[in-house]
Design a protein around this nucleic acid. Sequence first.
DNA 1: CTTTTGTGTAACTATTATTGTTACAGTGAG
DNA 2: CTCACTGTAACAATAATAGTTACACAAAAG
Lengths: 150, 150
Amino acid sequence: MTISSRFSVAIHVLSLLELNKEGVNTSEFIADSVNTNPVVIRRIMGMLNKAGMVKVRSGVAGTKLLRPVSEITLLDIYRAVQVVEEDALFSIHDKPNPKCPVGRNIQISIEPIFSSAQAALELTLERVTLQDIVKSIQDADMDTEATTCK
Amino acid sequence: MTISSRFSVAIHVLSLLELNKEGVNTSEFIADSVNTNPVVIRRIMGMLNKAGMVKVRSGVAGTKLLRPVSEITLLDIYRAVQVVEEDALFSIHDKPNPKCPVGRNIQISIEPIFSSAQAALELTLERVTLQDIVKSIQDADMDTEATTCK
DNA sequence: CTTTTGTGTAACTATTATTGTTACAGTGAG
DNA sequence: CTCACTGTAACAATAATAGTTACACAAAAG
């Protein structure tokens, strides 16, 4: 079990949009950076579009960020790409036997713990903004020889 | 995406072993409480056995807890049933384009954040013991009319 | 207006994980 | 020895993911 790579791809895409804000970011260009198929990018872009994070128009080349990177948290992105349904990171087996004391009480006993574990994870993501990621990428890249994507 | 119900089933099973420690807990009996197939229980039991949490012998009816419930955390169980591979709750798309500044630095930039989000989740699970769950089940059951599993 | 380029989306495939199920070999208590 | 139970293989059904092809539609550019 892993959380879908849609999340990491979305972070990649949005970072690229920021670092290449002067350029024309087509799905093909982005796909080349991510190393995947342009349709995969368009699907993710559609989700980010619905979440109001990017502006993308059908037929028109190039996607733009709609919000400053300092105001986009990783939690926003996580939610946008629907990696996990609302409050359902953990799944609980349904229909345990109500005739059994454990069966009829296990769900109510476990739920709050699963909720708080999920909340702890989400809080961590909420504390990191896209700006932090972009800065980290820039810092890491100072060691590297300066080649561009294009 | 959800975390496998193996986890909640394992918590259910171990709670039942504690609350029914005087009884003979066969996979069929447990399966009836969980409302699933006995083979599903045996598979999970095999994992808990390997983790040293229960004693189960082939051919011999009945599983026993090997450790006191106060010394089994939900994280122990989570690890035992291999819901998530070591440090890999989130997946990062592999082989991003090294010719791109974002592509060649995204992994190193994201990894520590994913790690700490995962750690936050795991810490929450570590702070809850099986004893807490058992107590919660008992408390919740005081409202209910007293029927038994058997 | 036509051409060209790019986006949106449907449809299909391959892969993987989960959950449930049947079947049966092997173990050990009585 | 018999019987009940566990361990495990094998298989099916379901679902999610990720990649791919194909094509309709949008709109910018000429």
